[in-house]
Design a protein around this nucleic acid. Sequence first.
DNA 1: ATTGAAACCGTTGTGAT
DNA 2: ATCACAACGGTTTCAAT
Lengths: 161, 161
Amino acid sequence: MAETYKVDAIDQKILSYLVKNARMPFLEIARECGISGAAIHQRVKKMEDAGIIAGSRMVVKPKALGFDVCAFVGVQLVSTNLYAGVIEALKMMPEVVECHFITGEYALLLKIFCRDNEHLMDVLVNTIQNIPGISRTETFISLDQAIERPVYVKDRSVIKG
Amino acid sequence: MAETYKVDAIDQKILSYLVKNARMPFLEIARECGISGAAIHQRVKKMEDAGIIAGSRMVVKPKALGFDVCAFVGVQLVSTNLYAGVIEALKMMPEVVECHFITGEYALLLKIFCRDNEHLMDVLVNTIQNIPGISRTETFISLDQAIERPVYVKDRSVIKG
DNA sequence: ATTGAAACCGTTGTGAT
DNA sequence: ATCACAACGGTTTCAAT
């Protein structure tokens, strides 16, 4: 987790391709950027080492895996200092894909995927509510996900373009 | 967006690797699964064609790109039938990475990334509030993202293991 | 930090089962 | 749906700059 690496214009251009297609060949990126494939390779490696790139993922439609229900869950804690233990318990739940510590009425906001409403019910009542330190929850079911995309990377197009 | 493809145990095993590392060589997956590289290739292509795999992404730490602030925004609409137009306006905003139509007090839940609090202020007051059809918003700043991972893919390990 | 070259390895199309 | 094979191209390392 070094925090010294500075992402320059070429790095940004490289990332602008890779956030849209993680399997884009480095040689193709090299041709777009006007530098060698070896240079792309080394820059990507450096960004991985610096923690700027935190891995890569194929994006799989949850429905194809049988997860028909997406929901957000606001969670109130008995006491904020129970945070660490609650996180550990949530990490054990495969349904939880995101957990944020947020400002406002709820201490935590979770994003979860469940097979169906019955599964959601089970997760809420039998799993989440049984985690020590969690008091109240409120559930917001996502009926439609209209936008889903990576963080914005400006393609400054400094080299060739 | 065909909805007929059935993800079998081998597909699941393939996906279980690719959701964790989009650049994992198909030949390596082939060795793990005990089938040929060509078979992996064709299965992945089929899943892409069927819309089960919706692309791939390098995961970039927002902070490295200068996005220090992550927030969720609950959005109330003047009228629900303005949904489509609002979505179009939100798609134009690079800060918005997710938008869900949810149950509860707010019609929409957005996830946004901003450079700093000033940028967040600008986005809330000068951009989001100016979109026709949006009435009230409430903002929840994410102070810490404790969990961030892909949808759970069971690795059934049916073949070799 | 970038390069070209080289060795290695993966990808992808084909034809057969 | 799978395979083996082969042509092609990508990855990765390295000495040199």
